[in-house]
């Protein structure tokens, strides 16, 4: 009833409303700039200098560090190791996850309990996961060799962690164990969201199970699957914890990934500028993938 008595300061209020959106997002942006952009800029600058543990030589080195990257065999091996793990683990996780999701898609007694328990590996610390499997793979006191021994009919003593030919299977088993439930849970949700009437219509048309799966189910869940793959691919690209817990990159440098190698150059050998160059290379590689990936995620929303 008091419209004529417009209060002083209401214009100020509306002004606040109009700027409100920037006001509330500002703190987050500032934090992200400090922790997100500053290190990138710093890394970029450092990578053109010659800082090592011995001397803080900030003189301009041009592309010296970047040129050195190309002749650094250990770097390219670490890239190779990373992509090897990615290329083997990701498809296995995807297929296993999909099969498990199919298994749990329909009614099953205690389904929710199963799902709750199956997700456990994914949420525990990767350091704990790596440690657990190191326990499991211990050549003398671990159960893995014992179980293989039962099937082989004779005691086995495979040196999982220390033999070059066995260390990758060990790492991959741990990785697949920890992250297959992730794929499983996401794909199960995606499959459950597939409109039943689509499948029923195809059944009435006489399509077989596999036809329905490849022609209808898979295309429908594809967007979600792509996102799950992207999330996992980005995780695998920077894989560090599991391997650190299991092998620290060893034996030798045979399980060094990009992250582990960068860490060693920066914090064990204190070759700051060189590590900076590696980091920058990684960022360039990643930003291409990340931007592509995020557009997908954003579109899928």
């Amino acid at each position: 009833m008091t419209a004529t008595t417009m209060r002083v300061g209401q214009r100020a209020n509306l002004f606040a409303d109009r700027n409100f959106k920037w006001l509330v997002i500002a703190p987050s942006i500032i934090v992200l700039l400090v922790v997100g952009i500053y290190p990138l800029v710093y890394t970029g600058i450092v990578s053109f200098q010659q800082i090592t543990m011995m001397e803080e030589d900030t003189s301009w080195a041009g592309f010296m560090n970047y040129a050195a990257l190309f002749s650094d065999g250990r770097l390219w091996e670490s890239f190779g190791h990373t992509f090897l793990i990615l290329a083997i683990a990701l498809p296995i996780e995807l297929v296993l996850g999909l099969l498990m999701a199919q298994l749990f898609l329909e009614k099953l007694p205690g389904k929710q309990v199963f799902i709750a328990l199956l997700i456990i590996p994914t949420v525990i610390s990767p350091i704990v996961a790596g440690s657990t499997w190191r326990l499991m793979f211990d050549n003398q006191y671990g159960p893995v060799n014992q179980i293989i021994g039962w099937f082989a009919g004779e005691p086995t003593a495979i040196l999982w962690i220390t033999r070059p030919e066995w260390v990758y299977p060990a790492i991959l088993i741990c990785e697949v164990w920890q992250w297959t439930p992730f794929m499983f849970l996401i794909l199960l949700a995606a499959l459950s969201n597939v409109d039943r009437s689509l499948i029923e219509a195809a059944e009435i048309d006489g399509a077989s199970f596999w036809k329905i799966f490849f022609r209808i189910t898979l295309p429908v869940i594809r967007p979600v699957m792509v996102i799950a793959i992207l999330i996992r691919a980005l995780d695998l690209f920077r894989i560090f914890d599991i391997i650190w817990a299991m092998t620290k990159g060893g034996p030798g440098s045979i399980t060094e990934t990009i992250s582990i190698y960068t860490y060693i150059r920066a914090f064990k050998e204190f070759e700051t500028s060189y590590a900076g160059a590696i980091a920058f290379l990684v960022i360039i590689l990643l930003s291409v993938i990340v931007i592509f990936a995020l557009k997908r995620v954003e579109i899928a929303r």
Partner: peptide, 24 residues
């Protein structure tokens, strides 16, 4: 919604900048 141009008047008083809670 913000009125980009023009006026909204209630009982002869412009209420463009008045918040919803005060408009009764």
């Amino acid at each position: 919604e913000v009125v980009d141009e023009g006026t909204v008047e209630v009982d002869g008083a412009v209420v463009n900048d008045m918040r919803p809670k005060d408009r009764d």
